[in-house]
Design a protein around this nucleic acid. Structure first.
Lengths: 257, 257
DNA sequence: TGAATAGTGTCTTTAAGACAGTATATC
DNA sequence: GATATACTGTCTTAAAGACACTATTCA
């Protein structure tokens, strides 16, 4: 589980690297909805993306995974570094100061704590199926919730910009790389994966061309089973061809939209 | 000019952010050659890419520019963030320790200086015309030179990997974005820009298809002048259409190779 | 048999890729 | 006119995009 930050991070050295952090934009997909996991720290009315400091013993990728695990309880999620953010203005907020934080949290935070210094943030995004997630909030957070990407609450610092950049990167990414392994059940239907792509890209696609191109990549295999969906024709089930999927992750795949 | 690091960086706080740095892979092009600017710090037989710490008052982009300027004397070069690097192993090297450095540089460096801690590095690459550059080495460097990308000397830490990643990003980039404004004279010939692309991509292209596609983007304009090149047919001169070039930078351009 | 969803094929348009002969400058 | 380089056009192939009808399930 997550280490407790409260003692360590307010000291000038310790377990964590200073002036650098990871922000992991955790996207959750479920039934045609794309959401982002956001937290609301105590004492702040604004929300933040899921971030944290980096231990001196871990890589930035390990930090991003640890941070995602601490909220979702899930490991081996699909994640991707997209870009880093750093400028002296990025952590400015009227309520982000020692006095307010100390009053609200009850933890004694010195005014010259390095957490008020400017940090460079390395941005990652992570994808998960949000109905599988049992959310856990951090020790300094009042709330932790999924928000539809199109209706985000007011975000702290430059976090709205970070979410926008993560979304751009995700949308660019799915045209060059397979996606969905962590987001769909082991056996899924064409309409299900089709909806996943439409939802992430936030635009409607031609179902015939979509199926044609997806099959052309070879990453999915049609099974000899169908799924009952009520008073309608039963769709066939498919599964990912894990080898071709992995190869696609490595070498890229063409699915331009 | 470059601030002197020597006093500041060995102290526990000061002008620079801790545990985070910028590495700027500076590529130089000239007459069908692509080179990388590398430095050799005193006391180390290995070479490094051009990097440095980030001031508390500047953005990471400003730091990358300042660092490029300090070596090349040039501003407004084309530069691009590509990815960040961070793991506890990345700054391990047998000669990178206080004792060796103090002995070689004459500057007293405490063994517990934070520069020996692991830093996250934000990677940028920059493009320039290397014949225009009057190289200036940093205060802690024995040498500073251009190296052909295909024949690099032994590099420090993970810098070989960083150069490889920068090259990959650059090559990917030039298929989606115009390039060359900072690398070619104001008026250039088709064979010149053709060579630039061949050199950066390190593969031969079809000259007919190349010209066709480049003209189709609209970013260059044919002039009514030719260039004398000796006992051969005189090639026409072209210039960039700055508006279309800028638009291409913003919205992307298709020049798949 | 009606309502809802699944599934599939063809034609057109556009871009990529392969390929070779003519034009011009100088000696 | 010999040599070296510049310049350009057509055909083939592959991918993208537009588009509409038939099939299945079950109430």
């Amino acid at each position: 589980m997550e280490q407790e930050y409260s003692v360590d991070i307010y000291q000038s050295s310790g377990e964590y690297l200073r002036n650098v952090a990871v922000d992991n934009v955790i996207f959750g997909y479920h039934e045609k909805e794309l959401k982002v996991l956001l937290q609301q720290p105590y004492a702040l009315d604004k929300w933040t993306v899921t971030g944290g400091y980096i231990k001196r013993t871990e890589s930035i990728e390990e930090a991003a995974n640890r941070i995602a695990f601490s909220r979702t309880g899930l490991k081996n999620l699909f994640f991707q570094q997209f870009r880093s953010f750093g400028n002296p203005e990025r952590v400015r907020d009227s309520k982000f100061n020692a006095k307010t934080l100390t009053a609200m949290t009850g933890i004694e935070i010195p005014a010259d704590s390095w957490i008020f210094e400017y940090s460079v943030s390395v941005g990652f995004y992570t994808l998960t199926e949000f109905s599988m997630v049992d959310l856990k909030k951090g020790e300094l957070e009042a709330q932790c919730n999924w928000w539809p990407v199109s209706e985000l609450p007011p975000l702290m610092f430059d976090h709205q910009y970070i979410v926008n950049e993560a979304l751009k990167a995700l949308r660019l990414h799915i045209s060059h790389s397979p996606i969905g392994y962590e987001l769909l059940p082991e056996k899924f239907t064409l309409p299900e994966i089709y909806s996943l792509y439409e939802t992430i890209l936030d635009k409607s696609l031609d179902d015939r061309n979509f199926a044609k191109r997806l099959m052309a990549t070879g990453i999915i295999i049609k099974l000899n089973e169908t799924k009952r969906i009520g008073a309608h024709r039963s769709p066939y089930l498919y599964k990912f061809d894990k080898d071709k999927y992995e190869a696609g992750l490595k070498n890229g795949v063409t699915m331009a939209f």
